[in-house]
Nucleic acid binder design. Structure first.
Lengths: 227, 227
DNA sequence: ATCGTTCGCGAACAGTGTTCCCGAATGGGT
DNA sequence: ACCCATTCGGGAACACTGTTCGCGAACGAT
């Protein structure tokens, strides 16, 4: 009967009543296994078969808990968002927002697969909604209208993810590819300003945490006005 | 002999001299076919087999022009970046940067798969380097140091992609899923501020182009100071 | 005509997400 | 105690995917 229910998000499709054989695992267990796997071997390693193996079951069984792999990814992202430790709002709004960003960055450095998920499928699950509620609370006294506050929330999250991703690529080897071609392009002669810029100081500045907060502080101030 | 050359980016691995059987196609042709396919059916449809079919050849032949699918994606992104029409720098820097953002947004609305690529694999190819050179030229008189200018460039691109992605999801059906759960969460009672916010005006404001430029203008001003 | 080299690409490999369909397990109703 | 609707577990299969191997064909230079 429920043919076109695919439009309903994951979080609204929950367990039915206690009739029939009881499930041996839970959606939370599946999500946790996927997160463990992603932490250890990256997002690409999160295949249905490998998650199932991690749980000691067959791949097809996972579909009792999750409608698709994409569902599972959404669940992973929202589950990590449970890690925010949100203080009761109070004090200047900029301080409150920066604290959210700071914690977001730490979550993303701890789970290196998160930025990609946040950037490409910005979905709001239960914990994401809680986060949004908190941000709106922090901005309660702020004169901006709703649309601007929502936009600030989205930009905050996106930028936190993008900066974290950038920071992570600096650590791993991904970045060297870019540097190699950049050097080549500069050596080729064109690109006057680029050559001048690269002649200066190092491109990887120290104290990424401070730089991160400084950057986001400036951007949020630009978006919402001075505190 | 060249065992570990995989670290070299795509753009440095070019065609050798004219010895042996000449190639029937070119790297540019392969890239163009992939772009056509992505424009018509999305990024997921860009598989080696389908790109090859589009060209009327076998899948394995593509590896004569491209080392991997990821290479092909990098080529696609940089090829589209050739579409920037960069005016000779002059006038206020903010105007110059906003013009770059405006063109970026249009490219991304024309190629709906671009934002995802820009966000998840921010690689600089030849045209990307040209763009960076242009931005540095626009900022030539600006007092900020190199690191800050580079960061501004990265943030500009990321944000353009993120806002474009958001704009695209508003059009397609992806967004309704989120709305559905948001409504559910609000109806559940908690989330005081969220309920108040959603009681206000519509969430999808009109005139996205103006809003886009306004937002980026504020952010760039916050980052680099008032013009 | 021969040789070194490159190209095209069918076939195969190891993996993927997902669906089908089965037998097994369960708990409520009688 | 039995039955039976209902759910769960999961092997097998399908339609794909990216990538490698190796062979025959095509060329430029000698």
């Amino acid at each position: 009967m429920d043919a076109g229910e695919q439009t309903v998000p994951v979080w609204l499709r929950e367990r039915r009543a206690g009739v029939g054989r009881p499930a041996e695992r839970s959606r939370a267990e599946v999500t946790a296994a996927a997160i463990t796997l992603a932490d250890r071997e990256g997002l690409a390693a999160v295949s249905m078969r490998r998650v199932a193996a991690q749980l000691g079951t067959g791949a097809a069984s996972l579909y009792r808990y999750v409608a698709s792999r994409d569902d599972l990814l959404d669940l992973m992202a929202d589950e990590v968002a449970a890690g925010y430790n949100l203080p009761t709002p109070g004090g200047p709004w900029l301080t409150g927002l920066l604290e959210v960003c700071r914690q977001g960055r730490e979550l993303m450095l701890r789970h290196r697969w998160l930025p990609e998920l946040v950037l490409t499928r910005p979905t709001l699950g239960p914990h994401g909604v809680d986060l949004l509620e908190h941000v709106l609370a922090v901005l309660a006294e702020h004169p901006a209208d709703t649309a601007h506050k929502m936009e600030a929330f989205a930009i905050m999250n996106t930028l936190t993810a993008a900066l974290a991703l950038n920071e992570l690529s600096t650590t791993s080897g991904t970045r060297h590819r870019q540097g190699a071609y950049l050097a080549h392009a500069v050596a080729a002669g064109q690109h006057r300003h680029l050559a001048a810029a690269l002649a200066g100081a190092s491109l990887v500045p120290a104290a990424p945490a401070e730089r991160f907060e400084d950057t986001l502080s400036k951007i949020l101030t630009g978006l919402l006005g001075a505190a």
